[in-house]
């Protein structure tokens, strides 16, 4: 469902993403972890076609995102950390707009939209202007709208930011449930507990490289020590820093 082949992105002299090879199967829940500025968001942007890779390719749902962007995007949903929503529309109107953009039958939009609104606890907000909604509610509107067209691949960046524990639980449950139904999920997060709880496999990106991939248990076992995922993560990202050549300092 997602195939990243030798993905490289350079910004001037800096290699922000440095040769990532990764295959994620259908229905797999993949979480990517990494320190700040590790290259997670750049990888995601290349995956969804917002930026062109310097080298390599990203294939989503069987389509190369650069060669057949429209075919890929029809099967893809992307929710960034701060999703854009039209402030003066209501969530209901926004979902209708999304439905039309993805060419979904209006009856299906009505039915599916109502179901998603119910699941995401959005019923009370459906006819309120988006500009007056809290960050958490906006986040839920964005996720619900992105799920409307039943995407085959769902890419989400920091989904839990701004969500209270109850709504975070709902989002986790729905994503896990959809993953069980065959939707591939690629989730980027800083919350190790979220990755550990939800992901079938976890990848750790550091300094643009995929330094480790595996299940939470496999990552813990790599160290040969009985340690928490957090310790493995810290060790992997520290070791990787120490073993690599010092990066040339980039202009800020």
């Amino acid at each position: 469902m997602i195939e990243l082949r030798g993905l490289v992105k350079t910004f001037g002299d800096l290699r922000a993403v440095d040769g990532i090879d990764l295959t994620i199967g259908q229905g797999e829940f993949f979480a990517v972890l990494g320190p700040n500025a590790a290259g997670k968001t750049t990888t995601i942007k290349m995956m969804v076609g917002l930026i062109k890779p310097t080298e390599g390719s990203a294939v989503v749902a069987g389509y190369d995102i650069q060669q057949s962007p429209l075919d890929a995007r029809k099967r893809l949903a992307y929710v960034p950390d701060f999703p854009f929503l039209y402030d003066k529309l209501t969530p209901l109107e926004f979902m209708q707009f999304t439905g039309q953009l993805f060419n979904i039958d209006p009856d299906k939009v009505r039915h599916q939209g109502a179901e998603l609104a119910r699941r995401f606890h959005l019923d009370a907000f459906l006819n309120k202007s988006i500009e007056g909604l809290s960050h958490g509610t906006r986040q839920r509107v964005a996720i619900a709208s992105a799920l409307l067209h039943d995407p085959e691949v769902f890419v989400i960046d920091e989904p839990m930011v701004g969500l209270d524990p109850q709504h975070a639980r709902i989002v986790k449950d729905i994503l896990k449930e959809r993953s069980g139904q065959g939707m591939t999920v690629f989730l980027s997060t800083h919350q190790l507990s979220v990755a550990e709880e939800l992901a079938d496999r976890i990848g750790i990106i550091h300094q643009g490289r995929l330094v480790a991939v595996g299940t939470a248990r496999e990552l813990r076992d790599q160290s040969g020590r009985d340690e928490a995922l957090e310790s493995s993560f810290l060790r992997l990202t520290t070791e990787s820093t120490e073993s690599s050549e010092p990066e040339p300092t980039q202009p800020a």
Binding site: K9, F11, G12, D13, L14, K45, L50, I51, K52, T249, Q250, P251, A252
Partner: peptide, 22 residues
């Protein structure tokens, strides 16, 4: 535009930022 951090640009500008970052 999305790919360009602020690292690119003209040598003069790069020099100025380089100095500031140090």
């Amino acid at each position: 535009v999305q790919s360009r951090g602020s690292g690119m640009g003209w040598p003069g500008l790069r020099f100025r930022r380089h100095r500031r970052s140090h």
